[in-house]
Amino acid sequence: MRIQQNRPMSINLLDPTRNQHFLPQVEQRLNAIDPTICNEKQSIYEFEVLSREPIQLGPAQNARIEKNLAMLDLFSFDVDRKQPLRHNFETLFNRYETDVRTHTESLLAKLAAGDHSVGHEATNIFAAKILNFARNPFSVQKILNTFGAFANLTPLRQEVTQLFHKVLFGRRKHQIHLCGELGITDAQYDQWLRMLFNMLMELAPGFPPMLDQLVNDMFNSKDFAIGVLVSTYNSPTCLLSDRGFSTNLRSECVDGFDFNLRSDAFIRYIVMDRKPRNVPAWMPQASIDAFMQSDLPVSLYLAHENMDLLRSFNMNVINQCHSRVFCAVNHGIVY
């Protein structure tokens, strides 16, 4: 189970896009009010979180997906205002975004048909969702706490080094406005851009990007055990967070990640360090033995129309979002 990108790595990062999505349009469209109409007219219901205790959502607003969850020049690291193109990460992001719909629909179709051979889809979806976390402007400090060390890497490919120099010293007059809007410092923004570049670019000949290495190691190493839960529903009431993810648990040895798959499904990843000292004390010995001796690091669990799971998922989305959540419907949302 390894990440497979259909597009070759490009080192030309010049792109005309100025309105840059931090949660891809393709994932928003999987939650569209009417996914059958043309992309230009698709929208999604937006709810402002007025209170988290008790939970209170504002009235539903219609948000055009083309402009939703995006900021001007958010990922532009070198901008010549006299030219139509700017250096940004759109090309690198697209390598992961391109097949999100394919992987999502393939996973759900296979499971509906009783085919559980979805390791390829689960791995690639996880990579795309982790990228969404890494590029989210509302989580910069948390991102740097998690992946900040990547910012200190130095590319070994000469052509990549030249691009990295632009990340370090590029023209970014928009940076002052962005940092003020996001409540982060210039140093944090600079580190974030370096981190993203080094996560997504092939830094040395013959080596995949650090994001690919990270996910492949996690899904193929017996050092980790991964549980994947896919929960599906008959109605489109799964929420989407403006942060793109939520956590369902966190401890010293176990991490949990929840992601919206589609308006009627979400996916949960539980990642446990397999080192014996990290096995939870509450786990029965028989389960510990099976856990330590299992050949595959990934276990699959399925649920359908489980309202308790939906309520828990949606509550986490609301409580952990920055300020807004999104849905394909404007009523009947369980939380």
Results as ranks from 00 to 15, higher is better:
residue 224 F to Y: 11
residue 114 G to P: 01
residue 220 N to E: 06
residue 291 F to N: 05
residue 162 Q to G: 03
residue 268 R to V: 09
residue 221 S to E: 02
residue 251 S to W: 06
residue 281 A to T: 06
residue 183 G to D: 02
residue 264 D to S: 07
residue 89 F to M: 13
residue 32 A to Y: 02
residue 177 H to F: 06
residue 320 Q to P: 01
residue 318 I to W: 02
residue 306 N to I: 14
residue 334 V to K: 14
residue 31 N to G: 00
residue 52 R to C: 10
residue 114 G to T: 10
residue 222 K to N: 04
residue 298 V to M: 14
residue 320 Q to N: 09
residue 272 M to P: 02
residue 317 V to M: 13
residue 229 L to I: 11
residue 332 G to P: 03
residue 196 L to A: 01
residue 153 L to E: 14
residue 102 T to F: 04
residue 297 P to K: 11
residue 155 P to K: 04
residue 131 L to G: 15
residue 277 R to V: 14
residue 333 I to C: 05
residue 252 E to D: 09
residue 301 Y to N: 08
residue 269 Y to V: 11
residue 184 I to Y: 04
residue 185 T to S: 14
residue 200 L to A: 02
residue 142 K to F: 09
residue 293 Q to M: 14
residue 25 Q to S: 12
residue 4 Q to R: 04
residue 307 M to Q: 03
residue 250 R to C: 15
residue 55 I to A: 08
residue 329 V to M: 10
residue 276 P to G: 11
residue 277 R to P: 01
residue 107 L to H: 07
residue 26 V to S: 10
residue 39 N to V: 05
residue 107 L to R: 14
residue 225 A to T: 08
residue 39 N to Y: 15
residue 58 G to S: 11
residue 193 L to M: 11
residue 46 E to A: 06
residue 290 A to D: 10
residue 325 V to R: 08
residue 130 I to H: 07
residue 179 C to V: 13
residue 277 R to W: 03
residue 110 K to Q: 11
residue 332 G to L: 15
residue 60 A to F: 03
residue 51 S to R: 09
residue 324 R to P: 00
residue 67 K to S: 15
residue 120 H to P: 02
residue 30 L to P: 03
residue 134 A to Y: 02
residue 194 R to I: 05
residue 29 R to P: 12
residue 114 G to V: 04
residue 73 D to S: 15
residue 109 A to L: 05
residue 165 H to C: 09
residue 222 K to C: 10
residue 83 Q to Y: 04
residue 159 E to W: 12
residue 288 I to R: 11
residue 187 A to F: 02
residue 163 L to K: 12
residue 123 T to L: 01
residue 194 R to A: 07
residue 195 M to Y: 10
residue 232 T to I: 08
residue 149 A to T: 12
residue 14 L to R: 04
residue 311 R to G: 02
residue 278 N to H: 02
residue 281 A to Y: 00
residue 260 N to W: 00
residue 260 N to C: 12
residue 46 E to C: 13
residue 265 A to F: 04
residue 91 T to K: 15
residue 117 S to E: 03
residue 243 R to P: 00
residue 16 P to C: 15
residue 281 A to I: 05
residue 175 Q to R: 06
